[in-house]
Write a protein that binds this DNA or RNA. Structure first.
Ligand SMILES: [Mn+2]
Ligand SMILES: [Mn+2]
Ligand SMILES: [Zn+2]
Ligand SMILES: [Zn+2]
Lengths: 149, 149
DNA sequence: TACAATTTTTGACACAGTCCAAAATCAGGG
DNA sequence: CCCTGATTTTGGACTGTGTCAAAAATTGTA
């Protein structure tokens, strides 16, 4: 990928073909990138390793390095979001830009989406932002999943 | 530490001597534990490694393993809270039980406390808990600190 | 002080991820 | 179709964070 990326994904692209989306973001279209993007879409909250497996199943071969590179690229252009719960390797999803949150089981590590309770871009209002400019409020709910209670 | 700990810290203990606090929680008092507790108090949001350094400076020597064990013990009895921002090793603090949040600089990693905007134990109400029983809502605000803007 | 249980130390190890660098391959523009 | 730059592969070394297990030391208690 070029060192400097001008564009960032907006939600309009969501329904286009993967190749189109990538091209429109100034990202070169490769089989690996399309396959990784597909895998992330098909398996929300998958780990890099699971994506590696998934892509290998679909296009035959890809290097681990390339998976990491691609996930990084897709994250940079805003097509993929990385979440990293305590005690778990990073997980990736293509549901971006809607400020949704996650609920994680302390026992088995199960992870589910949670729509934001407050509304659109809600939590962005901290009580005292200490001079920071806030662009994201990441909420992790911790507890026990139904089967672990 | 015994396999099963009955007691959990309550805020009353905060002003007592470290040894007293530990004893009252049924935790054996050791130089290492007191020193780790002191270090966490003196350096909020420190990493395990920083705590290791700090404790070595104060009592001369401690093993890395013991720092991890102790932090785990202190967390179990509720004297210490562990937070783990994406891309950062775990950080520890002794400000517990007030459901406060954190704001993190994407550029330099600076981390500050943020009082909860909503009130006491607010975010525990997710929009849809999917059958989970929630006991904590961990909020990380992401942005740029004053000096990085 | 002596004993039993807990804690600490020690050293190896696991895991996720990064970094490297050269060679091979590929995508997109002309 | 050809070039050129971007991307991928390969294979390994390497880092940071954290864990495991057994031996040694310490704590609390009697
Ligand atoms: Mn999600
Ligand atoms: Mn804090
Ligand atoms: Zn569970
Ligand atoms: Zn900063």
């Amino acid at each position: 990928m070029s060192a400097h990326l001008a564009k960032v994904a907006n939600v309009e692209h969501s329904h286009s073909a993967p190749g189109e989306i990538l091209r429109s973001l100034g990202v070169q279209v490769t089989a690996q990138r399309v396959a990784v993007l597909d895998a992330v879409s098909a398996h929300p909250h998958a780990t890099a390793d699971q994506i590696l497996e998934s892509v290998r199943a679909s296009i035959g071969a890809i290097s681990r390095q390339s998976v990491y590179d691609t996930l990084g690229t897709l994250e940079q252009v805003g097509l993929v979001r990385r979440i990293q719960p305590t005690g778990s390797p990073a997980r990736f999803e293509n549901r971006v830009g809607d400020n949704h949150h996650h609920i994680i089981c302390r026992n088995c590590g199960a992870l589910s989406d949670v729509d934001c309770a407050v509304g659109e871009m809600p939590c962005l209002t901290a009580s005292d932002s200490h001079g920071y400019t806030i662009d994201e409020a990441e909420v992790a709910y911790w507890g026990l999943c139904p089967t672990c209670q």
